[in-house]
Write a protein that binds this DNA or RNA. Structure first.
Length: 513
RNA sequence: GGCCCCGUCGUCUAGCGGUUAGGACACGGCCCUUUCAAGGCCGCGGCACGGGUUCGAUUCCCGUCGGGGUCACCA
């Protein structure tokens, strides 16, 4: 049975790089009819674990990355929180000690630091002298009488090689001598991640450890523990990490200021922010930015677009296929298709996937997606029914890229007498030449009852023929009069959707300016 | 600094000894057009460098350079 796991720490947000790792773990498991497990790495006893975990769970649910065992649903290997698994870690530490693969150490941090700095000065690999190592009760007692506090360290081999057969990178060699005697249990008795990690993987029967490349260097010490405890060695697959836009540096949530200097990233952010502002959402950089999944949910991206985009950061099926839904990915995913080099997060490409995916949605689906955004809008709105919204969404067509873009058309919901005007457009389009024509056309409209798109277009054509003018000479003025803006939907769609009463009121108001 | 990983258009990538080095996003131009989108067509643009191996290297090997990761009583 193939079993993979994703092991986030409760940090309060789901990072886009984490999504990619979780997705690949999920896809690999599902592809092979296996199971995907979610485990929570909360070994450093944070408070508010539940609170900091919820956004991560919500994000995964939203994306459709569902787990077979883990928080909320439990499973046969529970608990899935590392903070609740101390007894197992304690047993493992004791076993390591008993077998002589670990020892108690009483060095003070500053004493280790002196040795480490000496090694750096000599440009050599740091190797701990084991001066404060205690392997007997007498030794332990002696150090304790000096007032020293002990930790448990791994007694790493100091010769020979380790060869890791990585499913993505092939054979990777390490010299044991370059590895260090890492701490696995702290002075206060708590456990270090690497220890907890391998104990859990064994306990959860994880067959494939699929994680980001930054863990490759940590693998030797984990394998040492696995072998020392007689556990089964999982397969390893180290993914390239997701890098910053236009760079090869690992993407991090902290460097938002830097990313915003990237024009494409800034564009994505500003688009999202303009929607969030109109919804009255908090947009502090800490919780609202394109590195965090919740950003996309809040402004109305499609989860399938995010999944599609992230799947192709570091993976490809062939030289042409780019559109994938989750089911396609499960069918087509393979570790052979995973790239080795770090792949940078491309905001433009992600947006392009959003455009492609929303194109597949019906008007009805888009209405459902847009509705919550209108309901949350801060603007003063006229109540409109579902038919009205359908007509609007239909006319808007592919102008609605994300659900929040419906707010671009908020003027359709504004009371006629509260319509705001873009003064630049007014100055440019409501000219002495166009105003008389607009007045004439307004009167035609007043005598006309059929406000269907087709009828209005015929009416306009008649008008143009009679006046011997081109459509350009009036239509821009008409648009500004009716919507207050120089850009918008098709003109006849606009008139039809607004309806006769509204259109006349708006034109009159513009003419009265 | 030690160790490890990586290196094809600006970006994501296909390529697994012989290709006019393919696609996508972005960008530029043209067409369509009532604005804005969308769509159609065309274009720009790449194998980091130097040695080998080979009849032949983007592809295999070595080195150089460049980028990155990791070396915590963080995960």
């Amino acid at each position: 049975m193939i079993r993979t796991r994703f092991a986030p720490s409760p940090t309060g947000y789901l990072h886009i790089g984490g999504v990619r790792t979780a997705l690949f773990c999920y896809l690999f498991a599902k592809k092979h009819h296996g199971q995907f497990i979610l485990r929570i790495d909360d070994t450093d006893q944070q408070r508010n674990v539940e609170e900091a975990l919820q956004p991560i769970l919500d994000g995964l649910h939203w994306l459709g990355i569902d787990w077979d065992e883990g928080p909320e649903i439990g499973g046969q290997h529970q608990p899935y929180y590392q903070s609740q698994r101390s007894a197992k870690y304690q047993a493992a530490v004791e076993e390591l000690l008993r077998r002589g693969f670990a020892y108690r150490d009483f060095a003070k941090p500053e004493e280790i630091q002196v040795e480490r700095e000496a090694a750096v000065a000599e440009k050599k690999t740091f190797t701990y002298s084991r001066r404060w190592m205690a392997e007997t009760d007498a030794g332990i007692k002696k150090f304790e009488e000096e007032g020293r506090q002990g930790v448990v360290r791994l007694k790493m081999p100091r010769e020979g090689k380790l060869i890791i057969n990585d499913l993505i990178r092939g054979q990777v060699e390490f010299d044991w001598a370059t590895e260090q005697d890492h701490v696995i249990q702290r002075t206060d008795g708590s456990f270090i991640y690497h220890l907890a990690n391998i104990v859990d993987d064994e306990d959860f029967e994880i067959s494939h450890v699929i994680r980001a490349e930054e863990h490759l260097s940590n693998t030797p010490r984990q394998i040492f523990m696995i072998q020392s405890l007689g556990y089964r060695l999982p397969e390893y697959a180290h993914l390239p990490f997701v890098a910053e836009p236009g760079s090869k540096t690992k993407l991090s949530k902290r460097k938002l200021d830097k990313y915003l200097k990237n024009k494409d990233f800034a564009k994505l952010m500003n688009h999202g922010k303009s929607i969030a502002d109109r919804l009255g959402l908090e947009t502090t950089a800490d919780g609202f930015n394109p590195v965090i999944v919740d950003f996309y949910r809040q402004v109305g991206y499609l989860p399938e677009a995010i999944v599609n985009a992230m799947a192709l950061v570091g993976w490809a099926l062939d030289d042409k296929t780019e559109f994938f839904l989750m089911k396609d990915l499960i069918r087509d995913f393979s570790l052979e298709g995973v790239t080795k080099g770090a792949a940078s997060f491309d905001p433009q490409k992600l947006f392009a996937f959003q455009e492609k995916h929303i194109l597949t949605k019906t008007v009805g689906e888009k209405v459902t997606l847009c509705m919550p955004f209108l309901e949350k809008s801060q603007s003063v709105c006229v109540k409109r029914n579902a038919t009205f919204l359908s007509a609007l969404v239909n006319a808007a067509g592919d102008r609605i890229k994300v659900a929040g873009d419906i707010l671009d058309f908020i003027d359709f919901f504004t009371p006629d007498k509260a319509l705001s005007y873009n003064e630049t457009d007014v100055a440019k389009r409501l000219t002495p030449e166009s105003l008389p024509l607009l007045t004439d056309f307004r009167n035609r409209l007043a005598q006309h009852d059929d406000f269907s798109h087709e009828a209005l277009e015929r009416l306009m054509q008649q008008f143009l023929d009679e006046k011997q003018i081109k459509v350009n000479e009036i239509i821009h003025a008409l648009r500004v009069a009716v919507t207050g803006k120089g850009v918008g939907l098709g003109m006849f769609d606009t008139l039809e959707i607004l309806g006769k009463e509204s259109v006349l009121k708006r034109i009159d108001r513009a003419l009265a300016r």
